[in-house]
């Protein structure tokens, strides 16, 4: 297939001025996103969240975003004026953040938040928006959507809150969903439920998903392809199911440092960071996706 990728990014750089000079949070990264689930993995400070935020135009001055190319379906979205970005953000590319406690408005009912968000993007009547909100809550497997519509965020659990966020973000049928650590505030049992709900919705709608996380194993099992970031650069790109065959010492070190129930050891291997990782050549650097048009 020769479709253009949903999102194409070349030489993306994000810089912040500090007292010690310019700090480069993202230092020239390339990637394409097709209708696939793309994992972006790295430790805190690796620039993974900044990458997600820059796509949505959420880096505020004095932070600066530069790129040779940042195209959404062939159209440049680099540093769009806020008014035009707002037509894309939420409607065509949306984002689920880490903690629903902070991303939902605490003094507004869940139903009002979903309908209001939906009506910002689609011209529909109140009644239609209400129906859509109910439909979305059902889609994220909330059993009693009528009751949840009338409740406030503090009255729902963390897992439920995150499902509400996903419902709200997917209501306008965006083409890309950026999920930034969507499950790290959740317990393991709830986490799997939320992941599978998100998974099904993303597949059914043929969306592109950028899944940002620090959890290598989860990303490996949930995504099609994984980018591994270190110090603002992509050090390795590989198909998720081949994560255990990772060749970059950083990726290997990350995998080894996890304690495992099935393989007890006295001491955990510790990463010895090398300066060469900062600027060395990335492994498998081809940025284009094998899945521009869809999973199958």
């Amino acid at each position: 297939m020769t479709d253009a990728p949903l999102l194409s990014v070349r030489n993306l750089r994000v810089t912040f001025p500090t007292r010690q000079g310019l700090f480069q949070a993202v230092r020239g990264i390339n990637f394409d996103l097709g209708r696939e689930r793309l994992g972006v993995v790295g430790e805190s400070g690796s620039g993974k969240s900044m990458t997600g935020r820059s796509v949505l135009g959420l880096i505020r001055p004095p932070g600066r975003v530069e790129a040779d190319r940042m195209e959404f379906q062939g159209q440049s979205i680099l540093n769009l004026p806020e008014r035009r970005m707002r037509k894309i953000r939420g409607q065509r590319i949306s984002m689920v953040m880490q903690d629903p406690k902070f991303s939902l408005n605490p003094v507004m009912t869940v139903g009002r938040q979903i309908t209001e968000a939906y009506r910002l993007h689609r011209r529909v009547s109140r009644a239609d928006a209400h129906a859509k909100a109910l439909e979305m809550l059902r889609a994220v497997q909330i059993r009693d959507p009528e009751r949840v519509m009338d409740s406030y965020p503090h009255e729902v659990s963390g897992g439920m809150g995150q499902r509400i966020m996903i419902a709200m973000m997917l209501a306008p049928d965006p083409e890309i969903l950026i999920a930034d650590e969507p499950t790290s505030a959740l317990d393991v049992s709830v986490r799997n439920e939320v992941l599978s709900i998100m998974d099904n919705l993303v597949r059914d709608r043929g969306m592109g998903l950028i899944f940002i996380s620090h959890d290598l194993n989860m990303v490996a099992q949930f995504c099609d392809r994984v980018l591994i970031m270190y110090a603002g650069r992509i050090v390795e790109t590989l198909p998720a199911r081949e994560l255990h065959k990772a060749r970059h010492p950083y990726t290997q070190g990350l995998l080894a440092s996890l304690p495992r129930l099935d393989a007890p050891q006295d001491r955990l291997p510790v990463l010895t960071r090398q300066d060469s990782w900062r600027d060395g050549d990335p492994i498998a650097p081809h940025a284009d996706t094998d899945l521009p048009g869809g999973l199958r």
């Binding site: 430790e43 290598l216 304690p259 006295d266 955990l268 510790v270």
Partner: peptide, 14 residues
């Protein structure tokens, strides 16, 4: 903490 740092702290505690 990040996983690589977690490994360091767990080793320290052991």
């Amino acid at each position: 903490l990040d996983v690589s740092v977690q490994a360091e702290i767990l080793n320290l505690l052991s």
